[in-house]
C-alpha cells in the first residue's frame, strides 16, 4: 500500500514537474492575485469580507482545474497517450490523481484563508464552500475530458462556467457559487450539495476512465 502511494506521488510529482512554468499559475493566483485583489477594494474603499467572498469564489475554483486538466492533457493529446493507459496497474490512477490534486490545491488555499481569517475573522464557512466548488470544477473537468477525449474544451467550459455564473447569472439553480455572508452553518447547505454533485461527476468520470483502459487493452 505504501509502495503504491509512493509510486502515485512520484508520478504526480513528475507530471507536475512536466508542466514547467505553467505549474506556477495556480500558486500565483492563490498567493498573489486573490489576496492583492481583495486588498485593492473598488474605487478606494477598504477591503471588505463581501469582496473576499466574491473574489475567492471567482478565482479559486476556476483555477482549481488547471493542474488536473494539464495532467489529463498527457492522456489525450501527447504522443505517448496509448502507453499511459495500457498497464493494468494504471486503473483508477486518474481519479486518485484528481483527488490528490484537489487536496493539494485546497491545502494551499487554506494558507490564503489563514491570512483572510486575520483580516475578516470567521472565513471558514467560505473556505469550505470554496473547497467544494474547487472539487466540482475538477470533477467537471475530469468527467468532460474523459467524455470528449480532449482537454481544450473542458478548459473553455471551466472558465465559461465560472465567468457566467459568478459574473452574470447569479440566481440560477445551476449556479454552484453563493453570494452571501457565510456567517453560519446554514451557509454550508449549498456547498454540501455541490460536493455531492462533484462526487457524482467524479464517479461518472471514473466509469469513463475504466472504459478508456478497456479500449486500450
Amino acid at each position: 500500500m505504501a509502495h503504491e502511494w509512493d509510486r502515485l506521488m512520484r508520478r504526480l510529482y513528475l507530471e507536475l514537474k512536466n508542466q514547467r512554468l505553467y505549474f506556477f499559475v495556480p500558486p500565483f493566483v492563490l498567493f498573489a492575485l486573490v489576496p492583492l485583489s481583495v486588498l485593492a477594494g473598488p474605487q478606494g474603499t477598504d477591503p471588505s469580507f463581501s469582496q473576499c467572498v466574491t473574489l475567492s469564489q471567482l478565482f479559486i475554483p476556476s483555477f482549481a482545474a488547471w493542474w488536473p486538466l494539464f495532467v489529463l492533457k498527457e492522456y489525450h493529446s501527447s504522443p505517448a497517450r496509448e502507453l499511459l493507459v495500457v498497464h493494468r496497474s494504471s486503473r483508477a490512477e486518474l481519479l486518485s490523481r484528481m483527488i490528490s490534486l484537489w487536496a493539494l490545491y485546497v491545502l494551499l488555499a487554506a494558507v490564503v484563508f489563514v491570512y483572510f481569517a486575520s483580516l475578516f475573522g470567521r472565513v471558514w464557512y467560505l473556505f469550505a464552500a470554496v473547497a467544494a466548488q474547487s472539487m466540482f470544477m475538477i470533477a467537471l473537468g475530469y468527467s468532460l475530458s474523459l467524455l470528449l477525449q480532449n482537454t481544450f474544451i473542458p478548459l473553455i467550459v471551466n472558465f465559461a462556467y465560472s465567468s457566467i455564473f459568478m459574473l452574470a447569472v447569479l440566481d440560477s439553480p445551476l449556479n454552484i457559487f453563493t453570494i452571501g455572508t457565510f456567517s453560519d452553518a446554514g451557509s454550508l447547505v449549498k456547498p454540501a450539495t455541490v460536493a455531492a454533485v462533484a462526487i457524482v461527476l467524479l464517479l461518472a468520470g471514473y466509469q469513463a476512465e475504466r472504459r478508456l483502459y478497456t479500449r486500450s487493452m
Partner: peptide, 24 residues
C-alpha cells in the same frame, strides 16, 4: 500548455475577471 494558457488569458481579458486584479 502554451496554447491553453494563451487562450485562457485571452478569455479572461475579454471578461470583467480583470476588474479587481487591475486595481492592484
Amino acid at each position: 500548455l502554451a496554447v491553453y494558457t494563451l487562450t485562457t488569458g485571452f478569455m479572461l481579458l475579454n471578461t470583467t475577471f480583470t476588474d479587481a486584479p487591475f486595481r492592484v
